[in-house]
Every structure is written in structure tokens, then in C-alpha cells.
Amino acid sequence: MSSPVPRQGGALAVGGSAEEFTEAWLGNRRLSAHTRDAYRRDVAAWLAWCAARDLDPLRASFLDVNAYARGLEARPLAPASVARKLSGLSSWYDFLAKLRAVEANPVGGADRPPVSRDHSATVGLSPEEVDALLTAAEAGTGPAAARNLAVVALLADLGLRVGELVGLDVADLGVERGHRSVRFVGKGGRPRRRVLTPYAAAALDAYLAGRVDGPMFVTASGARVDRHSVFRLVRRLAREAGIEGWARLSPHSLRHAFATTARAEGVPLEDVQDAMGHADPRTTRRYDRDRHNLDRDPAYTIAAARVRRGAG
């Protein structure tokens, strides 16, 4: 869809395209490549929806956004997915408003679906299922076997997002204060660094076999592995491992397992939050599926302290 590109002061550049404006908006934000692609798709879907209804997106109201959101929910999309799409669209309109191309952000007054911070729809994995997945990867044969094991090892041991994983380059590997480490750009464009476990480091060394540059994970043709390939890999290995519900798993399932297992093993919430790159601790808590375990009720700690004081 072609649409005028706003300039400062509310003037419109004739002949510009919505795609050009979207790139200007994205260029103004610190975002990972994966997030940029997702935002492009979200804005493009909204513009296509407007075009099909002969609606000028610069004159859309919150009622139009509501109609669009209800259509997404009817597809059906999970409330969290709809909320994420509307969040990106809201940022797009915020940028338009700053340029005075629209009077107000129509998404601001829209009815966004409620999203529980206490629940995630992602199917998680138990520690034993993660072990089975890694065992299936270790048993792999063929030219891609070493790469596949390294991919799953990083997802399991570091809890990386799939976008962070596929964006890695060999040059991101390093050694810091005696720790094998990897640096990458996390969500929001923030530079991150994590340690490599001995298991993940050994898997990477076996796969890279001395390679020192280029994308870390590549196809047979030398192209960077994409996130869809990683999705297919996780599900295939889960099926081979006999994991129930393998068809609903994703790389994010390993991220869930990382957080849940870390908390179950007593890692403080703040450390898990830092490792996962969450700005809000409530996001980390959502991954901690063992947090409602009554064994962890602080009432036991309070009672034990009273006994130690000789008062109970």
C-alpha cells in the first residue's frame, strides 16, 4: 500500500510509501533484527487491512483498531499475540503523532485483550525432557548433526531467544576472566553477554572445528540458519525423543525450561531475570512454573525461624 510519508510540522511528502516511513520508524529505535522483522509484518498487516476497507490509516480511529483486533482474535490468535501486534502498531502511531501526521494515537484508546503476567501459553519441558532432547541430538548422524547439537545445547543451557541464537556470529565467542562467553544483541537492542557451559562450549567447538568468522550457525550452502529451521529441529528431535506434545513445542519451550529449572534449583529470581534479559521481574516470574509449589511457601520459613528462636 502506498501512503504519504509524514515530515516534521505535519507536511506530507507526496509519492512516499508507507514502507519507507516504517523503515524510518524502525531506524529510530534500538531493536534486534528479529523484532524489526516482526514489527514490519505487523504494520504491513494493518495497512493491508485498511486498504481492503478503503480506510486511510492516518485517519483511523480507535473503533477501527478495535475491529482489527477482534478480527485477529477470531483467527484465532492468542491474547498475548494480539496484544503484541497492537503494541507495535501503537509505537508506529506514536511516531506519527510526534511528527504531527496524526492528531492522536488511535491504538491508545483501543480495547486491548487482557494478558496475564502470571501465565504463559508456551508449552514447557521438564528437566528430564530437556535431557531426552539433548540425547536425541547427540545420537544424530549426517553433516548437520554437530550443528544441531550445538543449537540445542545453547537453547537448553543458556535459555536464549531463537532470534538471539540465529543472529550469532563466530566472532561473538570469547573468553572473559576465565569464562568461555558469547556476546549478542538482546531484545530492545541491548548488548548482552552470557557464559558458555562446558557442555555448550564442547558442542560448539566440535561443530565449528576451528572456523573463526561468519555466521555461527549455517546451512549446507553457507547461509545463516533461520528461526524456522530451529523450530523444525526442536520438534523433530522432540518427536525422536518420544516427548509427548512434540508438535506444540518451540525453541521458546527450552527457554521456559531454563527459567523453571533455574528457580527450582534455587537460583535467585534476580539472577534468572538478568540471564534472560528481562526488564521486568514479573516477566521472569511467568516462566517460573514451580512458583506455586507449596513447598516454597514462605510460611514454612517463618515458622522455622520461630522454632529456632525457641518461641514455637
Rank of each mutant, 00 (worst) to 15 (best):
T284H: 10
G71C: 03
R100W: 09
F217C: 04
L233F: 12
G188A: 06
D37F: 00
M1Q: 07
E23M: 05
L196H: 12
T260Y: 07
A206R: 04
R70E: 11
W246M: 05
P76I: 00
E240R: 11
N293M: 05
T197F: 01
V130W: 01
R59S: 08
E164M: 15
P106M: 03
F95A: 05
V230T: 11
V170I: 04
S61A: 12
W46R: 01
P268E: 07
V175S: 10
T35N: 12
K85I: 08
R41G: 14
L154E: 15
S181Q: 13
A67R: 11
T22R: 10
A311K: 01
G277Q: 08
S229P: 03
V212S: 03
D288N: 08
A104D: 03
L72Y: 15
P57N: 01
D226Y: 09
N28S: 11
A78K: 11
E240H: 07
S3P: 02
G15I: 09
R180P: 08
S91P: 01
G242C: 07
R289Y: 10
S126L: 14
A299Y: 05
G109T: 06
D290G: 15
F258P: 00
G174M: 12
D54A: 09
A11I: 12
V82F: 06
A137Y: 02
A101W: 00
V212G: 00
A241R: 13
G88N: 05
P57F: 09
R59V: 00
R7P: 08
L26V: 09
E240K: 08
V107N: 00
S120L: 12
A101M: 10
H34Q: 15
R84Q: 06
A97Y: 02
V5R: 11
A275M: 10
R286P: 01
R232F: 12
V43T: 03
K187I: 01
Y93M: 11
R30V: 02
R192H: 02
R289T: 04
Y39F: 09
A201R: 10
R75P: 10
